[in-house]
């Protein structure tokens, strides 16, 4: 077994996350899918850090985590306020911005 198994796994996770974003309507689940995609990227970063023998990849992954945390805070706040006004957490219901 070589390192690229990790990478293929990360690619699969990323794809599953992306498809989840496309097929799920609950905004919170969509958000979770995005988190999954970020995690898949983190796995890639850590794998390459190991491959190159430097810690930089791990640091980038750390930053991704922090930014993801910030993003989750804001995103969930947005979902909350949308839910308050529309009584719905479905991304399909927030479709006023269109032609």
């Amino acid at each position: 077994m070589t390192l690229n198994y990790y990478l293929v796994l990360a690619a699969l996770l990323f794809t599953i996350g992306a498809v989840g974003v496309l097929v799920r309507r609950n905004a919170i689940v969509v958000f979770m899918c995005i988190e999954l995609m970020l995690n898949a990227v983190n796995l890639t970063l850590i794998t390459f850090a190991r491959s190159t023998g430097t810690v930089d990849g791990q640091i980038i992954a750390l930053f991704v985590m922090v930014v993801a945390a910030a993003e989750v805070v804001i995103g969930l706040a947005i979902i909350m306020s949308i839910y308050r006004t529309r009584r719905s957490a479905s991304v399909d219901d927030a479709n006023l911005l269109k032609y």
Binding site: Y6, N42, L43, I46, T47, A49, R50, Q58, A61, L62, M65
Partner: peptide, 10 residues
């Protein structure tokens, strides 16, 4: 996996 891949902190 992170721990296994030499990133115990992460």
């Amino acid at each position: 996996f992170y721990v296994v891949q030499s990133a115990p902190f992460l």
